[in-house]
Amino acid sequence: MRFRTPSIRSAQAGLAAAFAAALIATGCATPTPYDYSAFKQSRPASILVLPPLNSSPDVAATYSMLSQVTLPLAESGYYVLPVSLVDETFRQNGLYNPPEMHEVAPQKLREIFGADAALYINIKQYGTSYAVLASESRVTAEARLVDLRSGQSLWQGEATASSAEGRSSSGGLVGLLVQAVVAQIVESVTNRSHPIAGITSNRLLAAGRPSGMLYGPRSPNYQKDGSVPR
């Protein structure tokens, strides 16, 4: 019995087909550029940050995150209304929890606070989880920027950070167990979630990141990256 060997031409055709399929797959995986058209048209200069919704079991999440959102927004070039003043204004008007505050109409928020846009934040994860070989504090949040003059959504995004980032896993099983014990002690004794929330806030709200916030008018990068029409 004689075995047929594939010809060079047929082999080349097979390789070409595989390469084309790989190109198609890669093209499908390319993320769609974020649509900033509404953001560019609105050009907000001042932002009202509402106390975040808390979907996590940790009651400290809302004000831990709220206390750390001003810095990345201000460094991105926006005037941010003082968050403590905003919270107290809501309370003086009978609104004591974030879900009630988030229900206020954009036009009413504009009337009360005079800001160009409002930032709505939802904390999806906040706190420390413990396991035999791994303990970590993780904070995940999503945000949406809304034009208070028109009620139109300008931008939305999500970010996460974890205390487990950058940990090495060397040393075998014994090394992993030792690292896990040390990590659990640190996570238990210190409130790691609060600084992790600060990292999440920066990743979520600092301008210049892929699909992130645009630079505001107080930033030296405003209009320099082509994001806002001159």
Rank of each mutant, 00 (worst) to 15 (best):
T5C: 00
S10P: 00
A16T: 14
A22P: 00
A25D: 05
T26K: 12
C28R: 15
P31W: 08
P31D: 06
T32I: 14
D35S: 02
Y36E: 03
K40T: 12
P44L: 08
A45R: 08
L48V: 03
V49R: 02
S55A: 14
P57V: 09
D58P: 01
V59W: 09
A60L: 12
A60W: 00
M65G: 02
T70Q: 13
P72F: 05
A74D: 07
S76V: 04
L81R: 04
V83M: 05
L85R: 12
V86F: 08
V86L: 08
V86I: 11
E88M: 14
R91Q: 15
N93P: 10
L95E: 01
Y96E: 06
V104E: 06
V104D: 04
I112K: 02
G114K: 06
G114A: 02
G114W: 04
A115L: 08
A117N: 03
I121M: 11
Y126N: 01
S129N: 13
S129A: 13
A131D: 13
A134R: 14
S135W: 06
E136S: 14
S137R: 02
R138F: 11
A141D: 07
E142K: 09
D147T: 03
S150L: 05
S150T: 15
Q152D: 11
Q152I: 12
S153Y: 00
E158L: 14
A159M: 03
A161L: 05
S162E: 09
S163V: 07
A164F: 12
A164R: 11
R167M: 13
S170K: 12
S170D: 14
S170P: 00
G172Y: 09
V174I: 15
Q179Y: 10
A180F: 08
V182L: 11
A183G: 09
Q184G: 10
E187N: 15
N191A: 10
H194I: 15
I196T: 13
A197R: 11
I199V: 15
S201M: 07
N202Y: 13
N202K: 13
N202Q: 12
R209L: 12
P210N: 04
Y215V: 01
R218F: 13
Y222G: 05
Q223F: 00
K224M: 12
S227A: 09
R230H: 10
R230P: 13
